[in-house]
Amino acid sequence: MGAQWKNKHKQDAAASKGRIFTKLAKEIMVAARNGADPDMNAKLRSAIDAAKKASMPKDTLERAIKKGAGLLDGPVNYESVTYEGFAPHQVPVIVECLTDNKNRSAQSIRMLFRKGQLATSGAVSWDFKHLGQIEAVPASDDADMELAAIEAGAQDFEAGEGNEVVFLTEPTDLDAVSKALPEFGYEVHSAKLVYRANNPVELSGDALAEVEAFLDAIDADDDVQNVYVGLAG
């Protein structure tokens, strides 16, 4: 995700908790279809961690788990759909949706991409790496990020915001590494699969503002779950 838009998005998120909670609840519901016990369901465990990091109320979290597991209000019928395309100035974008109506989502995405270019599957994703991304903080002063990365099986690591460390993994290693990190002094705050651009585009001024407005509009759509963009920080 382009760092500048990501930071701006985080500031906006502070004023729109409701939208964030809705997206997190959908993720929890979809994950809980494979079981309501986070100890036995890695995807659900990751979704719960993300919800707790965002300070989702406990009753909202528990209701989403029960609803997803079919213990409340009938079954959940969200489907995952991924779209690829370009923002203005040929900035590559991958959009992940969770929707109960694929036709509605497709129509919304087509409308949102009018100022950019909607592309076919594979037209953009080839230029992104699909990785596991773990955000963690040291639990003690003597925690060694390099040692933790090597011992836990991470592929790479980098400094995050504040004292946070971002550990990168192969997609299949995400759960194993997130479980191992606490043994080496790191408290995991989130663990998820992401796309990272290989060749991010550098923009500034009006061009950057135009792309940010485009991305904000996509992210605000109710069916959109995640937006990944090849925009340099």
Rank of each mutant, 00 (worst) to 15 (best):
S55R: 04
T120P: 04
V201T: 14
P138C: 05
L147C: 13
K52H: 13
P38A: 07
L193K: 08
E161A: 14
R33L: 07
S108Q: 00
A31T: 09
A54Q: 11
W5I: 12
G74K: 06
E170I: 09
E84L: 08
N7K: 14
V137P: 00
A42Y: 08
A119Y: 02
A119W: 00
E151H: 02
E27Q: 08
L231A: 08
E79H: 06
A87G: 14
K179L: 06
M1R: 13
D156P: 07
L181D: 00
Q155I: 10
A123P: 10
V81W: 05
S46T: 09
T22F: 00
A136M: 02
I94G: 07
N101C: 07
D141T: 13
E164A: 07
L118M: 07
R104G: 12
P38V: 13
D59R: 01
A123S: 13
R33A: 11
V188M: 08
A106M: 08
G70A: 09
A148H: 05
E164M: 06
N103K: 05
E212S: 15
D39W: 02
S80M: 04
A154T: 14
N7M: 14
Q11N: 10
E187P: 10
P200T: 12
D156V: 10
R45E: 14
L44E: 03
Q117A: 01
R114E: 15
E202M: 05
E170D: 10
I28P: 01
A197K: 03
A25M: 03
T60D: 02
S178L: 10
A139H: 01
L181P: 00
K17Q: 11
A3H: 14
A47V: 13
V194N: 08
A149G: 12
K115L: 04
K192N: 14
S80K: 07
A69E: 02
Q90K: 14
F157N: 07
R33V: 11
K192S: 15
A64T: 03
M1E: 12
M40R: 14
I65R: 01
L118G: 03
A197C: 07
A209M: 04
K53P: 07
E161W: 05
A50R: 05
L71F: 05
G132N: 03
D141N: 13
A232N: 09
G205K: 05
P57W: 01
